[in-house]
């Protein structure tokens, strides 16, 4: 922590970055995103178990980009999001100073290549709780799975917190905002909710960095992250590709192999 703070002060003092994007204390035990713009504000930065938010979601915002070069505190999932954003040309290589945080150790990564190399060394694993839930879903009958999600979605009010928390949902004009034609009904009724989550899942298949922020962001506790994670895992199983691994775009759904294996097309 002290090393992080020290480096943050240095970066700010030398003018190498305009701000350091990290975590600060929020309400209660929660942590929130915090921009330290003066060396004096660095003291507010915290780094602990509760710092789960994927700050990469801020990196693509106009307001942040306008600041100039920014340093970003990046646990593994954030690192994956950042490299995927570079692959999707939403961040330019070198625009950010990445303060990679891995089990307490801090490493500063200045380029996409360095980030890619750094990520290659690490295995990506799912949270134990998510694994259990996914296995439980998998074991259900189709009818039960349908009932499970319908029950979950019945609480959805389409606040779009899941969308807004997601670093990969950076589009200024979302399909949900599309009204010519209105593909997905705006209202938060059963069909509108179902279609919203289906579309969100499809959009993130092959792009989800599995940070789980969407699920944490849901104010009514729908495990929406399981949808995108399972779609991402499907892509990995089927095609061997994974989002958040390479700085060069390798999107499973706009590439193909002539011998892609399936057994359901008649």
């Amino acid at each position: 922590m002290e090393a992080l703070k020290q480096r943050a002060i240095e970066l700010l003092e030398k003018g190498e970055v305009k701000a350091v994007l990290g975590y600060a204390k929020g309400t209660g035990q929660a942590r929130r995103a915090f921009f330290a713009r003066q060396p004096g504000q660095v003291d507010k930065l915290v780094l602990d178990e509760a710092c789960t938010q994927n700050l990469a979601a801020y990196a693509t915002k106009h307001e942040v980009k306008k600041l100039g070069r920014v340093a970003i505190v990046a646990p593994p999932a954030t690192q994956r999001a950042l490299i995927q954003l570079m692959a999707e040309r939403q961040l330019r290589d070198g625009d950010l100073a990445i303060l990679a945080v891995d089990e307490g150790a801090i490493k500063e990564l200045g380029s996409a290549a360095a980030l890619e190399e750094h990520l290659a060394l690490k295995a990506q694993g799912l949270d134990a709780k998510d694994k259990t839930l996914l296995a439980k879903l998998d074991a259900m009958s189709r009818e039960d799975r349908w009932a499970y999600w319908q029950n979950e979605f019945s609480r959805c009010m389409k606040c779009y917190a899941c969308r807004n928390s997601c670093p990969m949902c950076y589009c200024e004009h979302c399909t949900m905002d599309c009204n010519r034609p209105q593909w997905v009904p705006v209202a938060s009724h059963s069909i509108g909710n179902l279609e919203y989550h289906m579309v969100r899942t499809m959009h993130l298949a092959g792009r989800c960095v599995e940070c789980g922020d969407c699920g944490r962001a849901c104010p009514v506790g729908i495990p929406v992250h399981l949808l995108t994670i399972s779609a991402e895992e499907t892509v990995h199983e089927l095609f061997g590709q994974r989002a958040g691994a390479k700085a060069k775009l390798d999107y499973a759904l706009s590439t193909f192999k002539t011998d892609d294996k399936e057994s359901f097309i008649r």
Binding site: E88, R89, Q90, C171, E172, H173, L249, L253
Partner: peptide, 14 residues
């Protein structure tokens, strides 16, 4: 806005 295109170029290889 100029376009709804966000310039992600995921379409490029499609």
């Amino acid at each position: 806005a100029y376009s709804h295109c966000v310039g992600c170029f995921l379409c490029l290889s499609a």
